[in-house]
Design a protein around this nucleic acid. Sequence first.
DNA 1: CGCTAACCGAGACGGTACGTCTGGTCTTCTT
DNA 2: AAGAAGACCAGACGTACCGTCTCGGTTAGCG
Lengths: 190, 190, 190, 190
Amino acid sequence: MTDDRRLGRPRSEATRKAILVAALEELDERGYAALTIDGIARRAGCGKQTIYRWWPSKADVVLEALLERADTTIAIPDEGSLSDDLLAFLTATFRQRGQRPTLIGLMAHALLDPVFATEFKEKFLFKRRAALRVILDRAAARGEIAADADIELLMDVVYGVLWYRLLLDHAPLDEPAGNRLATLLVRAAR
Amino acid sequence: MTDDRRLGRPRSEATRKAILVAALEELDERGYAALTIDGIARRAGCGKQTIYRWWPSKADVVLEALLERADTTIAIPDEGSLSDDLLAFLTATFRQRGQRPTLIGLMAHALLDPVFATEFKEKFLFKRRAALRVILDRAAARGEIAADADIELLMDVVYGVLWYRLLLDHAPLDEPAGNRLATLLVRAAR
Amino acid sequence: MTDDRRLGRPRSEATRKAILVAALEELDERGYAALTIDGIARRAGCGKQTIYRWWPSKADVVLEALLERADTTIAIPDEGSLSDDLLAFLTATFRQRGQRPTLIGLMAHALLDPVFATEFKEKFLFKRRAALRVILDRAAARGEIAADADIELLMDVVYGVLWYRLLLDHAPLDEPAGNRLATLLVRAAR
Amino acid sequence: MTDDRRLGRPRSEATRKAILVAALEELDERGYAALTIDGIARRAGCGKQTIYRWWPSKADVVLEALLERADTTIAIPDEGSLSDDLLAFLTATFRQRGQRPTLIGLMAHALLDPVFATEFKEKFLFKRRAALRVILDRAAARGEIAADADIELLMDVVYGVLWYRLLLDHAPLDEPAGNRLATLLVRAAR
DNA sequence: CGCTAACCGAGACGGTACGTCTGGTCTTCTT
DNA sequence: AAGAAGACCAGACGTACCGTCTCGGTTAGCG
């Protein structure tokens, strides 16, 4: 029941969107390393101050753009077996591989800026982990996972392989890869 | 065959070392994000040109310093069983966790600079993978790994978990963790 | 005839005064160079728009404040002789030396902004000249000034010396100085 | 016998001149109020830092340009009589009236920036006063100036009228004006 | 022993982005 | 319609580094 109406001119939604779009376009065309606040402002047709007013760093702009663009809700499959759930989850996750430049840039920034790192984990990384945890908890309830299994470790295996291949780009992140990873996990979980 | 002696004044070994030391000190004290060529040169008491003459980027300086400091030879345990070999390997690898700031910085740079990324993979990452491959190949020869197992994937699991925890810093990289990961791998390999 | 009452809410006299006071306070505390519309508005507790609505530039605010504060009527002495009139006029004028920061700022602004320069001359500088001209005309009628004397030049001597010392601050603007200048003028006028 | 050779790359004389020229061109074309360091650097084809390295403010750049362009030596006429000397001096000084925009800008800046004001007085204003003083001292030695005359005040009359007309631009600064001012001064000096 | 060549330190150079500041305009609700 | 609040676009500010360059000076092998 809070009254959200504030004094003064309200924030321009049009400008906010123009900035997010401009950030993603600049990112695609020139890469994260060449991304600048100046460039985003120029492309969005806004003043730099408007960006600095709402986001603490360029990474925060990109993160918000990513969250807005991505499916807000992370689909949690429920096929009845760990194997099928994992396969569905991995396939859905791998399908977002087009986001690679964005994710790479955000991770790079997180490594260089601890403040943003926290933001990135809370708003993105840990949200995805939570979805995976639901799947594993259900499988544990069905007895598909050994009682002494380390659920945290299993999740790290999933996201570890995912990020490692995303970062190094040395091996595929496609459906067959998802298949093999699911098989490995099922075997390891018993 | 090649006569490596060059005309003119030879490269100063003292300066080379001063630069590598200065780079690591700056890295420790101020973090990779604040690392600058200017700063390294100032601390090393040398001209900027001297750095640019021998290294293409600040990451290359740090990489060379890391390679020089780290055990040049990667120990490859041969205990007779996959389980023991993995445990020994992981324990040795995790022990280098003190390098975290350095590794984080190099990875960040690699994500932003494709040229350095190649360098980093060749000189560092793939060298470590090769050591692990020897262990896995031996285990396969002993029949400890299923014939249809995906050796590449197993390696990605090891280094994926390692890097994922290194980057996110959300879970420990200690001996118990190594133990559990080794157990998981043995189970998955069958 | 004209009906000056306008539609809508009338201008707030309290705000107008708060702005003029705030402008002079900022001027005294931080100097003209640091004077900003933002700062005046903040101190006056009003919106920037309210200032822009009524004054074209910060100098106009200061000018209005100065005119309001200063004696609205410029005293024109009539002692019976050029010498006494000049002395009285100079003494009265020099007494306003405390306005130096204000006058300095207004002159600086006038030099940089031709539109304000016109305003400044009409509302301030030429008003003072007119007073001096009355004195000189009366002296001419009494025959104290040679028929071929250049009255305009005499006025420029008075205000030239005054402003030159005000601007450079290299020599006093006190009563002895007024005395000497009056003597010089009387001599020059013959 | 100081050894002026300094370490490092020497200052570029070509760039120095390009900056001074660019500053005067910008000043002529757009006026002092619109003069920016950015603009000077852009026109001179140099980096902003190069300007900041050598001059503390844009006014210092303009001052150096003015000093370089103007006759370095201020001609001191010696015609044998105060009247002729003054006329020659005023004529020569008034002839530089083309400098008006430059002088106006420098004075405006001096009024806003006390540090530059000192610089401006020392390097420009007081140098001119010194020349005039030579003329007046010679006249005093010849007995053309009353023993009790205030030489400082006479100089302030000359430069006061000059600057007052320069700043307000309400009356001419030409040869007839010089003539009339010289006459007035001779009369006042007796 | 002098010449040549490549090194070294220092530091100026042209650029470019930074994050801040102010200007002048606009858009909301309130008086 | 005026006012307070505050967001908006625009663009200059002065700083920090980038990677390059140009000096004087040093240190090797070769003639």
